[in-house]
Design a protein around this nucleic acid. Structure first.
Lengths: 160, 160
DNA sequence: GTGATTTCGACAATATATTGACATATCGAA
DNA sequence: TTCGATATGTCAATATATTGTCGAAATCAC
């Protein structure tokens, strides 16, 4: 009943270290974002949802925003409800769907988001100072590869 | 009252994209880990705590494990309580402290952790397949730089 | 030693996020 | 058109994680 030991390949060993660091950086970055956005009444989570709305070319329903962010639609729904209660976003009618309203920023929301971008830009420059753009892009590339592989896994799981 | 616009430097622009991908990869990786560890009765969170125990050279109290992981000690405390209830870890007396017991794996816990490593190794090789070890290490280096900068921010905040 | 400070576990409240279940709406194929 | 599959919002339960507070233990300055 002893299992055959499985050794890690060289890239797998490197990847393991990367993942462990990834978790820690993720936590730190969220904390940094929370602190940065707190004066605007935003959190990292709210700011990510707003960013998703701003990045999209046209208004989208909640479920599409959730898919884009890679989180559950129920979670995005809760955040959108909160943002709507606070007058930061609103619903617009969806010509293609009776129930799936489109999420749009209010004028207030747009101002808050602009201020968030402003604060973010000022801080991210300091954060990136001394880092090579080329190396950052290499890191980005690796993470995107990882993302697409994991995405494939998820979808394979869903369909089984 | 118009604010001076702040532009992003080139590395800051690259870093922004990296961070957005980072969030998504973090989510996917946690989901991947959850699915991988589910048959063993573990979650990504539990597995991370076990890893922290296994990596340490000597048994540590809950607060030290939390600091190592960069999360709140209350969170680790809850996970350790659950793991203890399930017979995966146990407390050992701490000769240096009456209340801060040391967290150790039980024999059962060690077996589960070994099985977790075994499952992980088999999967991480596939995940790393086709990725360059050198590029992964560049990515790791960038994330560690980011981590230390953010850590500095956090500590600066604490002391203010 | 003594006292102030820090560390640590415990408890409570809240925020964040996922999963499951359900009803309704949409879409596609028969 | 009708029926089955999928998409969507909603509600509930649970898991995950942080923050604040408290009392006890340990540490440090003096």
């Amino acid at each position: 009943m002893t299992k055959t030991p499985v050794d890690r390949t060289e890239p797998a060993e490197a990847l393991t270290n990367l993942i462990l660091t990834l978790f820690r950086v993720n936590n730190r970055t969220l904390a940094w974002g929370d602190r940065l956005m707190a004066p605007l009444g935003l959190t990292s989570a709210r700011w990510q949802v707003l960013g998703s709305i701003a990045y999209a070319e046209r208004p989208q329903p909640v479920a599409w925003l959730a898919r884009d962010l890679g989180v559950s639609r129920q979670n995005v729904q809760r955040i959108v409800n909160d943002l709507r209660r606070d007058g930061i976003v609103a619903y617009a009618p969806n010509p293609h769907h009776l129930r799936a309203h489109l999420v749009v920023m209010t004028e207030t929301g747009q101002h808050i988001y602009d201020a968030a971008i402003h604060r973010y830009n000022a801080e991210v420059n300091a954060l990136a100072d001394g880092l090579s753009a080329a190396k950052i892009e290499t890191a980005h590339h690796i993470l995107r590869c990882l993302h697409s592989k994991l995405e494939g896994d998820d979808h394979a799981q869903e369909s089984s």
